[in-house]
């Protein structure tokens, strides 16, 4: 199954949000679920990043890369990064992959690599 991560576009004013929120941050005028889901672009620029060394127990790696990416449509997302030597502002492209396995489920999210 092809997995996607969606942005939420307000049906009243067109503002795009990620993650989901019940009320539009811009106009606060939308009704219940008056958002259109819009697939997010996968390409963007790396705004900031870190490598975490002391991880919560469920992550079975020694060092986990995380970053905030500004996607081509201007929306920002947080995701994992698999980049050896990241640089601020570099072009990246994301894939939807398993980012966490816990007792119940595989959790899917963005994993970004150098474009």
């Amino acid at each position: 199954m092809e997995r996607e991560i969606f942005g939420y576009k307000c049906q009243k004013c067109g503002t795009l949000h990620y993650p989901f929120r019940m009320v539009c941050k811009n106009c606060r005028a939308n009704g219940y679920f008056e958002f259109d889901t819009v697939p997010l672009p996968h390409a963007g620029k790396l705004l900031t990043f870190t490598f975490i060394h002391n991880l919560p127990a469920e992550f079975e790696v020694a060092r986990l890369g995380l970053g905030i990416v500004e996607l081509e449509n201007g929306l920002r997302v947080t995701g994992q990064i698999q980049i050896d030597d990241p640089k601020l502002g570099m072009d990246v492209v994301g894939a939807i992959e398993v980012v966490k396995r816990d007792a119940y489920d595989n959790r899917y999210g963005f994993v970004f690599r150098a474009a």
């Binding site: 990043f49 975490i52 995380l66 995701g79 980012v99």
Partner: peptide, 20 residues
């Protein structure tokens, strides 16, 4: 959904903020 599942911790947030 947008942070916790990725392994984001408070030190992680602080680190990304510090870099900026």
């Amino acid at each position: 959904m947008a942070e916790y599942i990725y392994g984001v911790t408070l030190p992680g947030h602080a680190a990304m903020f510090t870099r900026l």
